[in-house]
Amino acid sequence: MSSLISAADLAAALDGSSPPIVLDVSWQLGGPPGIDAYRVAHVPGAHFVDLAKELSGPHTPTGAGGRHPVPEPAAFGAAMRRYGIGPETDVVVYDAGQSVAAARAWWLLRHFGHDRVRVLDGGLGAWTAANLPVTDVVPEPAEPGTFVPRPGGTTRLDADQTAAFVAGGGVLLDARAGERFRGESEPIDAKAGHIPGAISAPATEYTHADGRFREPAEMAEYFAAKGVVPGVRVAAYCGSGATAAHEVLALHVIGVPAALYAGSWSDWISDPQRPVATGE
Results as ranks from 00 to 15, higher is better:
95 D>G: 10
96 A>S: 15
97 G>F: 12
97 G>S: 13
99 S>N: 15
100 V>I: 15
101 A>C: 04
102 A>K: 07
103 A>N: 07
104 R>T: 11
105 A>M: 07
106 W>Y: 07
108 L>K: 04
113 G>I: 05
114 H>Y: 03
115 D>F: 00
115 D>K: 03
117 V>Q: 03
117 V>K: 03
117 V>F: 02
118 R>Y: 01
120 L>M: 04
120 L>G: 04
122 G>E: 03
123 G>Y: 04
127 W>E: 05
128 T>V: 15
129 A>Y: 00
132 L>T: 02
132 L>D: 02
133 P>W: 00
135 T>M: 00
136 D>R: 07
139 P>C: 05
139 P>D: 06
142 A>D: 01
143 E>T: 15
150 R>S: 12
151 P>L: 02
159 A>G: 08
160 D>R: 14
164 A>N: 10
164 A>R: 14
165 F>N: 10
166 V>S: 11
168 G>M: 09
168 G>T: 11
168 G>C: 08
170 G>I: 13
172 L>A: 10
173 L>K: 09
174 D>H: 09
174 D>S: 10
176 R>F: 11
176 R>N: 12
176 R>G: 12
178 G>Q: 14
178 G>E: 15
179 E>C: 07
180 R>Q: 14
180 R>D: 12
180 R>E: 13
181 F>Q: 09
182 R>D: 14
182 R>Y: 04
182 R>I: 05
183 G>T: 10
185 S>I: 14
187 P>M: 10
194 H>R: 09
194 H>D: 10
196 P>G: 12
196 P>H: 12
199 I>L: 12
199 I>G: 06
200 S>T: 14
203 A>G: 15
204 T>P: 00
206 Y>D: 13
207 T>C: 07
210 D>E: 11
210 D>V: 08
212 R>T: 15
212 R>M: 09
212 R>L: 05
